[in-house]
Design a protein around this nucleic acid. Sequence first.
DNA 1: TATTGTTATACTCTATAACTATA
DNA 2: TATAGTTATAGAGTATAACAATA
Lengths: 148, 148
Amino acid sequence: MSVSLSALSDPLDNLLSYHLRRTTTAATTALANMLQHLELNVSEATLLLFLGANQGCTQSDIGRALRAQPANLVPLINKLVLLGALDKQPGKGRAIALSLSDEGQQLHAKVQQAFTRHEEVIGRSIPPERRDEIMALLRQVCRDACHP
Amino acid sequence: MSVSLSALSDPLDNLLSYHLRRTTTAATTALANMLQHLELNVSEATLLLFLGANQGCTQSDIGRALRAQPANLVPLINKLVLLGALDKQPGKGRAIALSLSDEGQQLHAKVQQAFTRHEEVIGRSIPPERRDEIMALLRQVCRDACHP
DNA sequence: TATTGTTATACTCTATAACTATA
DNA sequence: TATAGTTATAGAGTATAACAATA
């Protein structure tokens, strides 16, 4: 027999890890919606943002900075190339220097706008003076989780 | 040519959404490692925790409470059944009331222990008196993200 | 008909192994 | 040999559509 909804207790509501997961899912979904009209998903947009600030970097630079497996970057880079957003230039050894084309620059501006708007949405209940403190805390939780 | 690592700037480091994603990934990976010896992944363990506190609830109760698609619960429930952790009892209509078997109770205790230890690990830099405040904030960010 | 449970499917994210190319 | 890039693949998380069973 079904328990009525109000009677359900939630043993997870007191867990930081649970709220991290749930909140991140909600925030990422909202961001994905804001990027939809640009034909980019969150990963592709994140990569574009990073490339805009680090023109000439290589795939392995990106992997190290964003803690992504180089293999997982391949489809993302291909997508940006497909959109005409990327220029590739031969680098040292097998390395390929990536930079934004003119079209990529324009797309980059729109992505930045979307991210900024999204930050405003998810942070609208956070007093501005506490923002930095909260991000420092998230960075620390991230480090603590990585070194158990 | 490759840019030296120290020269790389990170335009994402100032974004709350980025740190949410990165921190959640790190925390969830750590939790998964702590659950490995119980042969449970994070989703299965979360479900077990919920069922322990809501014995007799149905699949659609769970879906509503954890905001999961009922279809996605099927493999999780099957896994717990496979481990001998669940009892199923016919309920109203097609509904099936789920509860923990004796074996499930024992597993539940171990899962709770793992979650508690994980909370200690990821929260070890958070002053206890600020924990509730931070979780309230995460809940609020979650709500804000859902209603853009 | 409305609700519940199930199956099949698909897309994204993440991770690893194995391969190729270049200094 | 060491580094960089690529391919293939596998597992987990999430979402929808379609179907079956029951009141």
